[in-house]
Amino acid sequence: MKSKIFIGLLLIAFVFQASFFQVQAKEFDYKSKEFEAAASQFMCTCGCGQDHFECDPKTCNLTIGFKEDIVEMMNKGWDKDKIREYYVNIYGEEILTAPEKSGFSLVAWIMPFAALGIAGVAIFFIVRKWVKKKGTDEQTSDNEIDKDEVEEEILSSMIEEERKKYL
């Protein structure tokens, strides 16, 4: 009986050991969404102009080690922000594919929308000025307002028909 239990335990241990090795040997998918989230934050410096998610390991030795390091960090349970912080501490902001959303780099993100907002407000005031200038002196009736391009189209069709008849 004891030997049966012993064999049973050995078998269980063997099965678990096998599955453990399977996990270790399982190929990591460098094109998974999780890896993309982490690796696409960093610019490859081999001159390919791509981030470490896109950079092809076949043509770039630099990205091979970088990818492996990221996988190692992910296996440790680091999320993309922690990985990002780690690399920024070592290489500075230059390694990122987009400026940080803090400090001076925040200007990069804000400026386009600030410019749009200011220009939008300016346009509003200009249009208001133009509309006011027009005022109420032109009493456009509702019928005139509703006269749209389709009606103009009808009119031009009529003119064309008449032209065909007489010319």
Binding site: Q41, M43, L96, T97, E100, A108
Partner: peptide, 10 residues
């Protein structure tokens, strides 16, 4: 003095 990269995410 820092030349940041402005890439696709931006």
């Amino acid at each position: 003095g820092t030349k940041v990269t402005v890439g696709m995410p931006f």
